[in-house]
Nucleic acid binder design. Sequence first.
DNA 1: GTACAGATTGAG
DNA 2: TCAATCTGTACT
Length: 174
Amino acid sequence: MTRGFYTKPTLEVAKKLLGKYLVRKIGKKKLSGKIIETEAYLGPQDKASHAYQGKVTPRNQAEYLIGGHVYIYLVYGMYWQMNISTGKAGRPECVLIRALDSNLGKIASGPGKLCRYLKLDKSFYGEDLTKSKRIWLEDRGIEVKLSQIRATKRIGIDYAGPYWSKRKWRFVLW
DNA sequence: GTACAGATTGAG
DNA sequence: TCAATCTGTACT
């Protein structure tokens, strides 16, 4: 996948990521899975985003990078979440990868489990997906029809209030 | 320096 | 339904 794919509007990227393959190389082994669930977080306006109101911290600065970079962080002190930054540089927008469909079953059926399975941690912070040799995305020619994409409300952000928690910015491949 | 909440998960 | 568990952030 090239840079141009990631710099499109975030909601568009979130939908187009469905059906693409996430590839992770560990030593001589290659792990991969089809992306089946994503969630969009839209910058300063989104109360559920870490960059709400344009906040910049050492933790979320990767969210401001130009599309195609990894924004990874720890939640609840135990689980890593992998995001892909989207849009232009300076825009705090990203897509959270929530689930992969792999031949190993439901091992990556949630953001925390996904990262545990792929052995992702802080060393991937800010990794460039268009250049990295240990993690990248592949288009394997799977055609995703609009009727196969289901939009639902996002998970685990009720604290952001009913308006933002009800935005249907979670996309599931049906 | 200390307090506190969280983009989850798995067990009960 | 609810606790585990720890980092970053916002205070004093």
